[in-house]
């Protein structure tokens, strides 16, 4: 894929104009997770402009972004970087790229599977499925037990009555996405 193609694809998915970035570094200066990132948001923008697709899609940064929108609010060129990160995640999933933060992707997959099935998100299901799949079984066990003891995790999930309608949303959107690709 050429540089322009990747940039265009990201711009379309994110509704942003990423070529406007002039690398002032303001985004990274205020990013609360910059110290955990490999590059930081300003360099992610530069890599988009240079068409460095593989580095981008396999970076930790696209999964570490907490979508706090601090950068987007401050960017002098009004680039909403959280949405750019979302677009990169979506492309990485669609293209089966090597995912550097597999736990994050597992979490999102379980979350969405729950919503597609129940129409609502169930924290009990989410915690249990995530812990099993990632094998982080014992982390947060103490908090988990307290939450259950305090009656905060209902065993019987509340369900959307019209689950077929919610599930149809997933299918309709999927179809549209495939047509676009």
């Amino acid at each position: 894929m050429t540089e322009t193609n990747l940039l265009q694809q990201i711009n379309t998915l994110s509704s942003q104009t990423t070529q406007l970035c002039y690398h002032c570094h303001k985004c990274t200066a205020g990013c609360p997770v910059a110290e955990d990132m490999q590059y930081g948001p300003d360099r992610i923008l530069r890599m988009i402009q240079l068409g460095q697709k593989e580095r981008l899609l396999s970076s930790h940064d696209i999964w570490l972004c907490a979508a706090c929108e601090t950068c987007g609010t401050r960017c002098p060129n009004e680039i909403d970087i959280a949405r750019v990160m979302d677009a990169l995640r979506q492309i990485a999933i669609a293209e089966g790229a090597a995912i550097s933060e597999p736990d994050a992707l597992k979490f999102h997959k379980i979350f969405m599977a729950g919503v597609q099935t129940f129409g609502r998100s169930h924290e009990m299901f989410l915690f249990a499925a995530y812990k099993l799949w990632t094998m982080h079984l014992m982390d947060d066990m103490d908090s988990g037990i307290s939450l259950i003891a305090k009656g905060k995790v209902p065993v019987m999930p509340s369900l959307v009555k019209n689950r077929a309608e919610v599930s149809k949303l997933f299918k309709n959107v999927q179809k549209k996405t495939e047509v676009q690709e």
Partner: peptide, 19 residues
């Protein structure tokens, strides 16, 4: 229904709006 919160926007932009 669930709004998709932290996850839908990471996976599919259209679904993140549709929910």
């Amino acid at each position: 229904n669930c709004c998709g919160a932290s996850s839908a926007h990471s996976m599919n932009q259209d679904l993140a709006l549709a929910l």
